[in-house]
C-alpha cells in the first residue's frame, strides 16, 4: 500500500475540549463560517451520556475523493507522496460541486474569496517536518497522525456509527470508539 497520511481520532482519549478546532482556526484564521475542523458530540443513541464523547472531524483525505472527481477545473490534487488531498484555491472557480458532493462536508464555501476551501492536512507543515496544527495542539493525544500503510490496525474503526459509510471513497480517518465507565450512583 502507498503511503497515506490519516487522522486517527481516539474518542476514548478525547475530552471534547475543542482545542484542535481552535488551534486550526487560530493558525489559519479562516473567515467566519469556514471551519476546517470541528468537534462533534456524539448523539445519545451512539454514546449513552450527553456531551461526554466526541469525534473531531476534518477532511478525510479519501483514497478516491469525491471533491477531486467532480471538480471541473482540477483544483484538487492528491499528493503522490502521502495521499494528502490538496485544494488549490487559486484554480477554484467557486462552482460548489465539491461542496455538494462530499458526504462528509469537508469543503466549505469561503464567502470572501468566493471559492471553496478545506483542511489541507497542514501539508506545508508536513513538508517542514512539523505536525499539523490540530494534532500538535491536542492535549490528550487523542488526535494523531498515522500512515495507513504502516498502521497496524487493532481496534481502529473506519465507519463508526453516525459517520457516513462511503466505502467507494475510502476515507482515511480511523476511529477508536469511546468507552463508558461502570456507573455507581447514589
Amino acid at each position: 500500500m502507498k503511503k497515506q497520511y490519516a487522522f486517527r481520532v481516539d474518542a476514548e482519549k478525547c475530552i471534547g475540549c475543542f482545542t484542535c478546532a481552535m488551534a486550526c482556526k487560530s493558525y489559519y484564521q479562516q473567515v467566519e463560517g469556514v471551519i476546517w475542523r470541528q468537534v462533534y458530540p456524539l448523539k445519545e443513541e451512539i454514546y449513552p451520556h450527553r456531551e461526554r464523547a466526541f469525534f473531531s472531524l476534518a477532511c478525510n483525505h479519501c483514497e478516491d475523493p469525491a471533491c477531486l472527481n467532480v471538480c471541473p477545473v482540477v483544483a484538487y490534487t492528491k499528493r503522490e507522496e502521502d495521499g494528502v488531498v490538496v485544494h488549490h484555491q487559486e484554480k477554484c472557480i467557486g462552482c460548489g460541486n465539491c461542496i455538494r458532493s462530499c458526504p462528509y462536508g469537508a469543503p466549505k464555501y469561503n464567502p470572501v474569496e468566493k471559492r471553496a476551501e478545506k483542511c489541507s492536512f497542514c501539508h506545508e507543515r508536513l513538508d517542514a517536518g512539523l505536525e499539523p496544527a490540530c494534532i500538535m495542539s491536542c492535549p490528550t493525544e487523542a488526535l494523531q497522525l498515522v500512515d495507513l500503510a504502516k498502521l497496524n490496525e487493532t481496534n481502529e474503526v473506519q465507519f463508526p456509527a453516525g459517520y457516513p459509510k462511503m466505502e467507494k471513497l475510502n476515507p482515511s480517518t480511523r476511529f477508536i470508539l469511546p468507552q463508558a465507565p461502570k456507573m455507581v450512583r447514589r
Binding site: 478546532a21 481552535m22 487560530s26 500538535m136 495542539s137 492535549p139
Partner: peptide, 24 residues
C-alpha cells in the same frame, strides 16, 4: 500571528487549551 504550546515542555507538549489559543 499565532501561538502554540511549547514542545520543549514535556507537560505542555505542543498543546494549549481552547482558552490559551484564544489569547491573541
Amino acid at each position: 500571528q499565532f501561538i502554540e504550546g511549547a514542545q520543549e515542555s514535556t507537560f505542555t507538549k505542543g498543546g494549549l487549551c481552547v482558552k490559551g489559543y484564544s489569547y491573541p
